Deep mutational scan, measured.
Amino acid sequence: KTEWPELVGKSVEEAKKVILQDKPEAQIIVLPVGTIVTMEYRIDRVRLFVDKLDNIAQVPRVG
């Protein structure tokens, strides 16, 4: 699995749990929505963009 659209609106902790069940090797990085990030693709990275309430604001994707 490479993306988790069902996690939008969920808490960071809930999202981490689901992603690590699907992809145990994932390196999860939590960032505020709108953060500028590098464009290199990494198969072991999932970025979680969160709103001010620490809920997932964008679809988490591998990369």
Rank of each mutant, 00 (worst) to 15 (best):
K10A: 10
K52G: 14
I19L: 05
D54R: 10
V33M: 11
V46R: 02
K1M: 07
N55V: 10
A26G: 05
V37K: 12
V50M: 03
E14Y: 13
K10E: 08
E6H: 07
A15C: 02
I36Y: 14
L48W: 01
E40N: 09
R45H: 15
V46D: 01
V18W: 06
L53K: 14
T2Q: 12
D51A: 00
R42A: 15
K1T: 08
Q27G: 07
Q58S: 12
T2K: 13
M39T: 14
P32C: 04
K10T: 10
R42S: 15
D51M: 00
T38R: 11
K17R: 12
Q58V: 12
P5W: 01
I43Y: 11
P32W: 00
A26D: 01
D22L: 03
V62W: 12
V37W: 08
I43K: 13
E13V: 12
W4N: 01
R61K: 08
W4L: 01
I29A: 09
E3H: 07
Q21S: 11
L7N: 01
W4M: 02
L31Y: 10
S11M: 04
S11D: 07
P60M: 00
T35L: 05
E3R: 06
Q58Y: 11
V46A: 05
D22I: 02
Q21W: 07
K17Q: 10
V59G: 02
D54T: 06
E25S: 12
D54E: 11
V8L: 13
V8N: 01
L7K: 00
R61F: 11
P24F: 00
R42Y: 08
V30I: 09
Q21I: 09
V46W: 01
I29Y: 08
Y41N: 14
V30H: 00
D51H: 01
E13T: 11
L7P: 00
F49Q: 03
V62Y: 10
Y41W: 10
V50S: 04
V50G: 01
P24D: 03
P60K: 00
T35I: 05
K17V: 08
L48H: 01
T2H: 09
V8H: 03
N55Y: 09
M39L: 11
F49S: 04
Y41Q: 14
L31V: 14
T38C: 08
D54W: 09
L48K: 02
T38E: 14
K1P: 02
K1H: 04
V50N: 03
G9I: 00
T2A: 07
I43P: 15
K10P: 01
K10D: 04
W4R: 01
F49Y: 13
S11K: 13
W4Y: 10
E6F: 06
K17A: 10
K23V: 13
V30G: 03
V62N: 04
V33I: 11
Q58F: 10
M39Q: 14
D51L: 01
K10G: 05
T38I: 05
G63S: 14
I36G: 15
K16R: 09
E40S: 08
S11W: 06
T2M: 14
E6I: 03
P32A: 06
V8A: 04
L7S: 01
L48T: 03
F49G: 03
Y41I: 08
K52L: 09
T38D: 15
T35K: 12
I29N: 08
D44E: 11
K16C: 05
A26M: 12
K10I: 07
K23T: 07
K52N: 14
V33F: 07
I56Q: 04
V12I: 08
Q58G: 07
P60Y: 02
L53M: 13
M39D: 15
K1R: 09
R61V: 12
R42M: 11
P60L: 00
D22N: 07
E40P: 10
R45A: 15
R61S: 12
I36L: 13
S11T: 10
V12W: 05
T35C: 09
K10S: 09
A15S: 05
L20D: 04
K17M: 10
D54I: 01
V59F: 01
V62F: 08
A26E: 02
M39G: 15
V18F: 06
D22E: 12
V59R: 03
I19N: 03
M39F: 09
K1C: 06
F49V: 08
D54V: 05
V46G: 00
E14L: 11
V8Y: 06
R42F: 08
K23G: 02
D54N: 15
V30N: 04
T2C: 07
D44P: 11
V59H: 00
P24L: 01
I56K: 00
V30L: 05
E25K: 09
E25W: 08
E25V: 04
V8S: 02
K16H: 05
I56H: 03
A15H: 00
P32G: 04
V12N: 01
P5S: 03
L53S: 15
M39R: 13
E14R: 08
G34I: 00
I36T: 15
E6C: 03
P24H: 03
D44W: 04
P60A: 03
Q21H: 14
I19F: 00
V33P: 08
V18P: 02
L48Y: 00
M39S: 15
F49C: 05
T35V: 07
W4A: 01
T2R: 09
T38Q: 12
Y41F: 10
D44N: 12
E3N: 07
F49T: 04
A57D: 05
A26F: 06
V50I: 08
L31S: 13
F49R: 02
Q27E: 14
K23Y: 15
E40C: 06
Y41L: 11
N55T: 13
V59L: 06
R47K: 10
V18S: 09
D54M: 10
V8T: 03
E40V: 05
K23W: 14
I29T: 14
D51F: 01
D54C: 08
A26Q: 04
D44H: 10
I19M: 02
L31M: 12
Q58T: 11
I19V: 07
V18E: 06
G63W: 11
I36Q: 13
V30M: 05
T35A: 13
P60W: 02
K16N: 05
E14D: 13
K10Y: 08
T2V: 10
V33W: 05
V46S: 03
S11V: 03
L20F: 08
P24M: 02
E14W: 10
P32M: 07
T38H: 12
D51W: 01
D44T: 07
D51K: 00
I19Y: 01
A57H: 04
P5A: 03
F49N: 02
T35P: 07
N55M: 14
V50L: 06
E40Y: 04
R42L: 11
Q27M: 07
V12E: 03
P24S: 04
W4C: 03
Q58P: 00
M39V: 12
K23M: 15
K1G: 05
D22Y: 06
